[in-house]
Structures are given as C-alpha cells and as structure tokens.
Nucleic acid binder design. Structure first.
Lengths: 304, 304
DNA sequence: CAGAATGATGAGAAAAACTCATCTATCGAG
DNA sequence: CTCGATAGATGAGTTTTTCTCATCATTCTG
C-alpha cells in the first residue's frame, strides 16, 4: 500500500520549480498560471509545508522545495526514460552513445568516417563522459566503458584489452642519456597517472628491473595528459599502444622498449540488460566489434 | 519540456501490476475494478501497446509491462521516500539503521542494551545488509558501512579502523606443531577470505616473513566464516581484534602473534547528505561515536 | 507614479475520473 | 456438461477534480 502525493500536482510543481515561474510552467503545460498556482497550493497543503517562497513577485524554492525537486526530478527522469524505451521505434536509426574521452578522440573519431560510409542512414549521437552512467536515467542507448568488466545489471561485451608500453619523445633518445635497456629509465623522469601509480611498478617488475628510483616523477590526472606530457619530452609515460599508434607511426612518440604490461583492464561495450536493440544499435555493435577483431594491429586510416 | 505519461493512470497500473489483479488494486485505491480497467486502458492507449495479458480470467503482465513496472516502481519508491523525508517529524524517535552483518552481531548487538538504557524512548529498527544502499530509495535513516570511506554524495563519519590479527583455536598451540614465531605458520593452514587474498600476504610481509608456502589453505566467503573456521581449529585466520574480543577473552580463540595489520579500511556511519537529523538519529550517532572513542580497547559488556 | 507583469483567490466551466449496469469469458463445483 | 461464481471490459451517466476567467494585491520598471 503506497503513500504517494497527488501526482499531477507533482508534475506541475516540477515544471514550476524548473522554470522558477508559475507563468512559464503554465506555458509548458498548456494551462493558465492560475491552474499552476492552484496545483502547487494543493501539493503544499498535502505536504503541510511551503515549497515556494512568495515574498517577492518571482517565486523561489524553499530549502524543502529544493530538496524535494531533486528527488522528484530523479523520479520523473526515470519514468520518462522507461516510457521512451517502451515506445521507442525498433526501426530507429539514431544511436546515442556515451564513450570515455580518451577512447573517443583516439579511436572512435578517426574511424567514424568508416562507419558512416557503411551505414549512411544511421546517425550517431556521441557524448563523452567518464565513469559509469545510470542507464535508468539517461537517454544513452549504449556506452563504451573502461575497466575490469565487472559491472552488475548491464549487458557487457568485451572489446579490447588495454596493454601499456613506455612511450617518450624521440628527442629523449638523441640526448646524452641513453635508453637502451630498462635500467636506463633510472636516469629519466617517469610520468605517472595519479590514480594508477602501480602501473610503473608493475611494468618495471615485468621488465626485470628490481627496483628503480627514477630521476624524477611527474603526475598527471589522466592517461591522455600523461601521453601529451611524454610527447612534449617531459619524460617517459605508459600508454596504450593502440590508442597512441598514430603518434608512434608518425614518429611523434617512440617506444624505447616493446615490453607490454597487461593491465587486466579493457574497453567494453555496454548497454541496458534485456533491452531490445534497435537496428541502429545492432549496426553500431556489430561494426564496433568487427573493427576490434579485424584490426588487432590498431591500424588507423589516414586522417582526412 | 518533459514527456510524461498520465501519472494517475501510472499509479493505478503500478498497483494493478503489484497485485496482479484489477479488483485488488481497486480495493487498495478505494475505487471499483471498473475504474482500474479504464485507467489501465488509458495508459495502454497512450503507450500504444498492451501492458497486461488478458487471455485468461486473471491478468498477467506482458514483457513490456514487466519492464515498465520495474522502472515505475523505482521511481515511485523515490517519490514516496522523498515525501516521507519531507513530512517526517523532527521529533521522531524511531531510527532505521542498516548495518553490515558482522558488525551487527559482534559489535552492535552486545551493546544495544546500553543504548536502550541511555535512551529508553528511542526505538532502533535494525536491518542487516551488505554493500552500499541507495538512500534515495530506502527508508533507512542511517547505515554502518565497511570500506575505504570514499563514497560520494553521502555524509560519512569515521568510526574505527579495522586492524587484523591472526587468530586460531587454542588446540592448535597444544598440538605438536608450535606457533612461536611467524615463520611457524608455514606448517599450518592459512584461512583466507575469498575476495581479500592479499591480506595474509601483507601480514606476512609486515611480520618480516619473506615468503611462505603454507601447509594448506582454506577459503571462506566472509570474515565471519573465516573466524568460525579458525575457532573450529581448521587453521589460522586473520580477524578484526575488536570484533573477536569476546572469543579471545573467553579463550575460544587465541592470538599467537600480536602483530596488527592495518587494512586501510574502516567502519563508518553514513547518512544522506543535507538530511536534517531527527532527535533519534542524533542520539544514535552521538552514542555510537562516543562508544567508539571511549572504548578503544573493544571492551564488551557481559552478555545478559 | 503609472503601467506592466506575476501570482493569489473564488466561482463557475470543462475535463477527467469514477460508478453503475450490463456483457463476455473463464474457472470450478456438482 | 451445465450452471453459478468470479474477473474483467465497456458504455452511459454522475461525481470529482482540474482548469479558466474575472478580479485583486504586490512588486518591479520606466
């Protein structure tokens, strides 16, 4: 037995709160501002407290109203998305995809022309975002996640392992300090990614270097920045060999030692469980997975 | 500009789906089954698909209806909780608390009589649950979490570090295999917790034992089970010294080496951010934190 | 200070929701 | 197999809710 407030009043409240104006809410809902006023009053009487501050001509939310709005919005988002999923056309040809920024700029972007050539009718709507997203409340159809692959309640498809190799600017090799064997790294600056300090330790261990106290170290907040720093000649970074293949090919970056570190992390394509795929989603999924399989080397087409 | 379905129809649908009966839903909502039928039809017409299967005399949800119900429930839960929070009486003297099972049985339970003696008017409603909970959608007021303390969007209060010591049955010491120095562990079975295999490695390292290949190993799924296994004489486990203090005091468990391993994890009291605390919540929080501070030794009152 | 804009309020109109009567289908008892 | 009971569907009419309109108060603007 549920105890819900008057839901239509709730809808009106949400709109009024969003616009901070009863008149604007009225326009959105195709009713008069008077109707909005009545409904808000009904809700306030039900709750036994005021949601809006009406001391001035314009309305502002009370702290209680502010808190309530957050939750109500959340809930309405979910209803809206669930409804959209249900009524969504299976024949839809727009696919909304959320991808990790690094993967987007270094892998997907250079290959998008290929996808568009293969599926000219399908439109990709791409959104860069880090971390996990709540498929209950976003309109994203699919996402590319980076991590361990252990996520609950979503459909997960393995794409590609992430293997790290040391990279640096070719200028570093020309300098007086050589980089001929892994031990030589002791004389260089190691570029770390803040939250993954263990990567260098693991790599050195794998390279058979017992312990190393490098000449200096530099911390960057993301892999993308670490790679950029390496390219600027600031030191040696660990980077995904596939994502940096373009820079390596063009000679902007060099790989002093081809010793790959398995991070046990990977890129995965994920989407909501039990969700029936639209033709657009199917096309993107198949293309993405075949690009991954058919192209282990990380070959990238020339930039146009 | 939102696109929400008719919300009253949604409420009726949720009730009908929950009861798998229009007549029952009618009773809950104080309307006739006819009204329910009309509302469900309205919603189905809005969505353009059927939510119920009416081939038999009793209604069952279609797959689409099933999916929709999940989301709608989720959303209604959130609205219900938000409404409850808003209208909740500040003077409330019932506190709903969710705690880790281990902490509940070994720490909270033995001390609850104390709390009740101090605050006879306040009623604790305790719920044992592992993992994190979604404060947006539960009626729990507060929770005790175990972990790193790095959780977003909630108010976190440190309670106590978790330090591990080896424990075993006193029978193991009487046996022919001595436990005089850490190296002697090589002749015993080490009891691991499945997801925390590194703990023994770290402890051994801290104890100055380079590497050890124990006689055998036993894996248990939780700390509670590992401790129980140790008590049965099956081997040596790592356990929180405070949570097992009663067994240690009574001699059911012994600590062969008092070398504590800092797990960098701890117990924390958490609750919803910005939530105004009721007097009951304040009382529990203050009592819990003072029990923690004033009682570093882990002293437990005699069981009644 | 006048005029415009925003919201409140009460009464009546419009719309939505509900009930009732009636109908159909299924299930179970005899 | 038949008949009564039960669950839901449906359409017409009634009740309730929601909305509009007219009017008023307040405040911001020029």
């Amino acid at each position: 037995m549920r105890h819900l407030p008057p839901l239509n009043a709730l809808r009106v409240f949400e709109s009024a709160a969003r616009h901070r104006s009863f008149a604007e809410a009225g326009k959105e809902l195709f009713v008069t501002s008077s109707a909005v006023s009545h409904q808000v009053k009904t809700l306030e009487e039900y709750l036994g407290l005021s949601l809006f501050d009406r001391s001035r001509r314009t309305v502002t939310l009370t702290p209680a109203g502010e808190q309530y709005l957050t939750s109500v919005r959340h809930a309405f988002d979910e209803i809206e998305m669930a409804t959209q999923r249900l009524t969504a056309n299976q024949e839809s040809n727009v696919v909304k995809i959320s991808v990790a920024p690094n993967f987007l700029t270094r892998w997907l972007m250079p290959r998008m022309a290929r996808f568009q050539a293969l599926y000219p009718d399908i439109e990709l709507e791409i959104n860069a975002s880090m971390g996990l997203l709540d498929f209950d409340r976003t309109s994203s159809d699919m996402a590319v996640y980076f991590g361990s692959g252990e996520w609950d309640d979503i459909e997960v498809h393995f794409l590609r392992k992430v293997m790290l190799v040391p990279v640096c600017s070719p200028r570093l090799l020309d300098a007086e300090l050589p980089l001929e064997k892994p031990e030589d790294l002791a004389k260089h600056t190691l570029i770390y990614v803040s939250k993954r300090k263990w990567e260098w330790e693991n790599w050195l261990q794998q390279a058979g270097v017992d312990f190393i106290s490098a000449r200096g170290s530099l911390q960057m907040s993301s892999g993308q920045l670490a790679t950029a720093a390496a390219q600027e000649g600031l030191g040696v970074a660990l980077a995904d060999s596939t994502l940096t293949s373009r820079e390596i090919k063009s000679g902007k970056l060099v790989v002093p030692f081809d010793i790959q570190l398995d991070t046990h992390r990977a890129f995965y394509l994920v989407y909501r469980k039990q969700r029936p795929l639209t033709i657009g989603m199917k096309a993107f999924k198949e293309w993405l997975m075949s690009e991954m399989r058919g192209n282990e080397s990380g070959e990238i087409p020339e930039a146009s």
